[in-house]
Nucleic acid binder design. Structure first.
Lengths: 213, 213
DNA sequence: ATAAAAATTCAACGCTCGTTGAATGGTAGT
DNA sequence: ACTACCATTCAACGAGCGTTGAATTTTTAT
């Protein structure tokens, strides 16, 4: 496993990320995290202020990079269309593709982070606030782009469409293997290439259907 | 509040349902549940075998009724089409409408149960297994109906489409208020009528787009 | 080599956790 | 009135919780 490559602080973040993703914030103790990180319990409180702070740092570690690559993907699409508006599908693809590509890598570096986001997005307690805090500016940027691509779209239709998109995307992150059972092995939760092929088309059709009623 | 109407066992289930939905299974203690149910801690272990059993009974209490009304809705749609196949939108509507109607009631009887389902569906740990156990027969029935409505659809496209549907639907259950913030008040998470108007059309367009590529 | 700073270890705090067993009250049938 | 039986209360168990302070080792800078 060669765990000793990383400095302690990162090993703690790695362990916390994986365990929070699997069991939820309350389902994991600091002691369990530090056991997995192979370090003394009190080191958690040397490197972080509290369990909650550790959780926050797990979230923050990756969120900026995530937002930056998604913004770049959107800007690239827009630069490809200096005159007209990009298609709905292109915009949605810029929103989802960067994430699914990270998940498609053979190592698990991003897997647990996205599982965590899936849980947060669907948590009545923290879902609204955390997702807003971390992703709102980027999401507004994408919705602006979609509004331009669908100039006659009612605002409610636009936001509800994004809501459906968000649900479909984050359930994909959870990788619960439900679809593996349901499909009898025809589909696999971890098969991001298949999702990449299908999700933007599926969602773009939904946007267009709602916004041109 | 007039809590004393219900027998103890139901009061415990009510309290557990609400607290599990808000904080997750591990985020709530049996003591908290019994405090909210206004009963002694040990009564939890008189009426239920363990905390896990209490959770299971919370799930089981409503799942049969849920499956029965959704099956009836599908059968009603099919009876309306004795010769041809029902439309994709009608089938999806039968899948979602009964649930959203329960959520639309002014009291909160069903709210917490659906929030719980939203969390479970997106939980890497239990999501696949629990959802499969409780909803698989019904879901297979609906997918069969959709397959008939989309006879040329590839199996992978069909299952992935259902996956996107499931994500969109369960995020709606979570009622995280994220869309309230994002839309600046234009949309409200609790506005099931608005979702009822839009979700079947959105998802049906997605199914059709994927299945006729 | 030495002093300062960073990282790690050890022991412990008060508290809550899930769970249990034994004692008590209430209610129905005889 | 007596007896079962169902429902509830009370007290407690060992274990694990988040967190802290002080002592110790390791690294860095002079």
């Amino acid at each position: 496993m060669a765990k000793e490559k990383h400095p302690t602080r990162e090993r703690i973040l790695d362990a916390a990320e994986e365990l929070f993703a699997n069991k939820g914030y309350e389902g994991v103790s600091v002691r369990q995290i530090m056991r997995q990180a192979d370090a003394d319990v009190s080191l958690a409180y040397y490197h972080f202020k509290s369990k909650q702070d550790l959780f926050d740092q797990v979230m923050l570690r990756r969120v900026e990079y995530l937002n930056s690559i998604r913004l770049k993907a959107l800007e690239a699409v827009e630069e490809r269309h200096p005159d007209d508006a990009p298609s709905v599908e292109e915009i949605i693809d810029a929103f989802t593709h960067p994430l699914l590509d990270l998940l498609a890598k053979e190592h698990d570096e991003w897997k647990y982070y996205f599982q965590l986001i899936a849980q947060i997005n669907n948590s009545p307690e923290w879902g609204g606030e955390l997702m807003t805090r971390y992703f709102d500016p980027l999401v507004r940027r994408f919705i602006d782009a979609l509004r331009k691509a669908l100039p006659d779209c009612d605002e409610q239709d636009l936001f509800w469409s994004y809501h459906f998109l968000s649900g479909a995307l984050t359930l994909t992150f959870a990788e619960t293997k439900r679809i593996d059972n349901l499909s009898g092995g025809v589909c696999r939760s971890s098969d991001m290439a298949s999702i990449n092929e299908r999700m933007p088309a599926f969602l773009a059709a939904g946007f267009k259907a709602l916004c041109s009623r």
